[in-house]
Design a protein around this nucleic acid. Structure first.
Lengths: 131, 131
DNA sequence: TTGGTAGTATTACCGCGGTAGTTTAATGTG
DNA sequence: CACATTAAACTACCGCGGTAATACTACCAA
């Protein structure tokens, strides 16, 4: 695995990545559009904000683009899996010294958990047991 | 609960908080000392780096200090619980749209989990079931 | 052909985490 | 008392996420 880097994305960057992961590839306008519908509770971003961020993200090899006529079509350059895992691992390391059990324990104790969610968790663990 | 803010601490800040949570209160020199033994793999920080960061953290009400003779004695101004929960929740929200089950699922699938850890997880869920 | 429009490029600014050098002030020591 | 040590104050700088205005340019339509 060539570049299993450590990712630590900001809010906007992560939201942009999620859009790209979902739609595959999109123009700046399309990303901007998507963000507008997704970012509830926040002011609509300026078009150039999204464009600028995409360019910065390309510098850091998070996305790449091809050109179609005048438009840039962006797509993710790193898989969701890699980013999600990296960020999750990072937090587990930082907060719980790498202990998964401590992490889950904390989550269970501090969050509302419905019974059906508990069932699902239980099943996941069973499954994992007979790896 | 008056100020249940959202915390997003950087590496150094979190490490400093951990020291303070552990020892209760400490002078700059003591924090610096502790960090030196804790931060493996990293160059020893300058004394002033720690002092500066502590001052910045006090501005943001993460720590406070009292004076003893010439020295500043710092202590945490926010409980570990609040910070840990806030940061964990933040990640669950950002990466997994708030779903605890999705979070745990991801963690289980991407990390090494020993059998004793699985047992512990299982017990935790059982316990949580009879709330 | 010319003016609007759609896009990109350029530039700028703020806040903050992180890192540290330099300066100043107090205190201890020979 | 003079000098060294200790500690805080001040200043500075970098990178980066986030945000956006402005400038430039190609293209389309009346």
């Amino acid at each position: 695995m060539a570049s299993d880097r450590t990712y630590r994305l900001g809010d906007l960057q992560l939201q942009i990545m999620k859009v790209l992961w979902q739609v595959g590839s999109a123009s700046v306008a399309e990303v901007h559009e998507q963000l507008g519908t997704e970012r509830l509770g926040t002011e609509r971003l300026a078009y150039t904000t999204v464009a600028t961020m995409l360019r910065k993200m390309e510098d850091r090899h998070l996305v790449r683009h091809r050109q179609e006529q005048r438009r840039f079509i962006y797509q993710a350059a790193v898989p969701a899996q890699a980013v999600t895992q990296s960020m999750a691992d990072d937090l587990v390391d930082r907060l719980f010294e790498g202990s998964l059990a401590d992490t889950v324990s904390h989550l269970l104790q501090t969050r509302e958990v419905g019974p059906q969610e508990l069932d699902r968790l239980e099943r996941m663990i069973q499954e994992r047991k007979q790896h």
